[in-house]
Structures are given as structure tokens and as C-alpha cells.
Simulated assay, not measured.
Amino acid sequence: MPQSDTSAPAGSIADRSAPSLEVRSVTAGYGAHTVLRDVSLVAESTEVISLLGHNGAGKSTLLRAIAGVIEVMEGDIRFNGTSQLGRGSAHVAKDGIALVPQGRGVFPTLSIGENLRLGAGVARGVRDRTKVTLDFVLDLFPALAHRLHEDAGTLSGGQQQMVAIGTALMACPRFLLLDEPSTGLAPVLVQTMLDQIRSVHRELGIGVVIVEQNIHEALRISDRAYVLRLGEIVRDGPAATLLDDPDIWGLF
């Protein structure tokens, strides 16, 4: 079971600071429909955090609230001690919080290279946050290396997920929010994808908050986890502890 890294490569986030992300008693939803109720969590850049729960538990809504995609009704979301409320998704992304939404979120009529350059545009002026370069992304996802001029829409589901994650990394984030990155992948590819996500965290010192339906695999690569049920956090703790707890499975 992974443990929080205590060191990071030179030039990464963690060798200079450990940015923190705090969700404080957040209530959020869509219009008059409340999805999250009094949700609180803390994530550090030294961790991989899993958000677990059944469909409709509020996991994706929580990621969208953190990323500034939806407004918070009550409570606060703070990044490095600064409130993110009302700033909007573009400003949150500039601050270093990158969301890879469910469904991959690539621009299918743009080439792989053009998709990746969109991420680099977000990072303009802040590229010193990490050592992310195009070469790093292509080393991480070598299947993309010889297809940069092909339209992203021609790729397999797994390869489109690689493009979506690569685009987010090119934005040089401090935190990477991933909404079910293994959706649509063949079972044999799920472990590989999640191992690559863990490698990103380890090599770049980027904090990761991941929503994942494959509970065993999510806990395997995580340091801590939160379990949501009907919009509320009902359990949290070290991933290894939750993985070995037989009572945890009754929550899903």
C-alpha cells in the first residue's frame, strides 16, 4: 500500500512547499437541488486521496465544486489558505487546480498535440510550478508519441484518457482532480492507468484527488480515502485501513 512520499524530485512542488486543499463544511448542488451536505476534507500535495461511494453519492459534484465549475451554497474551499469561492473555474485552474472530468474531456476534432498545447496555454507564466513538459507527458504515455498530428477523436477510450490527463498536466497543476479515469477502459488497462497516476504524483509532487469506481484499485494507489453516501462523508482514513475493514463494503 502506498505511503505519502517524504521527498520529491528537484524542481517539483513538494521540495519548496506542500500546498493544501481544504473543503470546509461545503453544501453544493445544482439550482435548488442540493447534492453535498456539510462536506469537509483536507488534501495535501504529498498525498493521493480517493473519493469513494455509490453512483449519485456526490463525488463528481465535490470535484466540480473544488474546481470552481459549480458554486458553493454554504461553506468554503481554500487553497493554500486562500478562499476560492466566486473565482470561477478559469481562475481556479490558473491557481493550479486541474480537473479531468468524467468522459475524458478531449476536443475530438483537434489533434493530440493541439489538445496538449491547450493545457500549456493555461500554464503560461507559471510553468516553474513543475517540470512538466511535452517530453514528460509522452514518456508517461508513449502510445501518443507517434500520433501527435492525429485527431483526438480517432483514439481509443484509453488513449483519449491519456490525452485528457496529459493536457491537465501540461497546465502545471499543483493538484490534479480526476473523475473516474478508468471509465470505459478494459479491465487489463485499469491497473496500468492508475499506476501511471501514482507515478505522476510521485515524480512531480502533485497532489491527486481521484474519484474511482474500482474501489480495490483506488485504495491500492491511495494514501487516504473519503467515503461519501447521499452527499455526506460517512467514513475516512488511511487507505490501507479502509481496504482491510470488512465493514466498509456495506457503504457501497
Results as ranks from 00 to 15, higher is better:
96 G>P: 10
203 E>H: 07
122 V>P: 07
146 H>T: 15
98 A>G: 06
168 A>V: 00
165 I>S: 02
136 F>R: 08
119 G>R: 01
158 G>T: 04
180 E>I: 00
155 L>P: 04
156 S>H: 11
204 L>W: 10
137 V>K: 01
171 A>I: 09
103 G>T: 03
197 I>Y: 08
143 A>P: 15
207 G>Q: 06
150 E>L: 13
179 D>V: 05
189 L>R: 05
109 T>M: 13
175 F>G: 06
195 D>H: 13
143 A>S: 15
168 A>S: 07
151 D>L: 04
116 L>M: 10
146 H>M: 11
186 A>M: 14
131 K>F: 12
179 D>A: 03
118 L>C: 11
107 F>C: 09
201 H>G: 02
191 Q>G: 04
99 L>G: 01
128 D>K: 15
191 Q>R: 14
188 V>P: 03
109 T>F: 07
139 D>H: 12
192 T>S: 12
201 H>I: 09
201 H>N: 15
147 R>D: 02
200 V>W: 02
104 R>I: 00
210 I>H: 08
210 I>S: 11
142 P>T: 07
197 I>V: 15
143 A>V: 15
127 R>V: 14
182 S>Y: 05
148 L>G: 13
189 L>S: 00
173 P>I: 05
142 P>H: 10
95 D>H: 13
93 A>D: 00
190 V>A: 08
157 G>A: 01
203 E>N: 14
92 V>S: 12
132 V>N: 06
211 V>E: 00
194 L>S: 05
98 A>C: 06
144 L>H: 10
105 G>W: 00
116 L>E: 05
209 V>S: 03
153 G>V: 09
110 L>P: 05
198 R>I: 07
209 V>H: 02
138 L>W: 09
203 E>I: 04
188 V>C: 08
199 S>Y: 14
115 N>A: 03
168 A>Y: 00
170 M>I: 01
182 S>R: 03
198 R>G: 06
146 H>C: 08
133 T>G: 08
172 C>Q: 13
149 H>Q: 14
147 R>T: 02
141 F>E: 05
212 E>L: 03
133 T>D: 10
137 V>N: 00
195 D>G: 05
124 R>I: 05
158 G>A: 03
140 L>K: 02
178 L>I: 05
117 R>V: 01
103 G>V: 02
130 T>F: 04
137 V>D: 00
162 M>E: 06
161 Q>S: 00
177 L>E: 02
198 R>D: 07
101 P>F: 01
143 A>K: 13
140 L>S: 08
113 G>V: 03
172 C>G: 09
174 R>K: 13
206 I>R: 08
131 K>V: 03
134 L>F: 12
125 G>Q: 07
95 D>V: 13
198 R>E: 09
159 Q>M: 13
202 R>G: 05
188 V>T: 15
154 T>R: 14
202 R>W: 01
141 F>H: 12
131 K>H: 12
92 V>L: 03
122 V>Y: 11
157 G>W: 00
101 P>D: 01
154 T>I: 12
163 V>Q: 09
186 A>E: 13
163 V>H: 07
195 D>E: 12
130 T>Y: 09
92 V>W: 12
129 R>I: 09
138 L>S: 10
138 L>N: 11
121 G>M: 14
114 E>P: 07
142 P>R: 10
199 S>L: 15
143 A>D: 14
175 F>L: 11
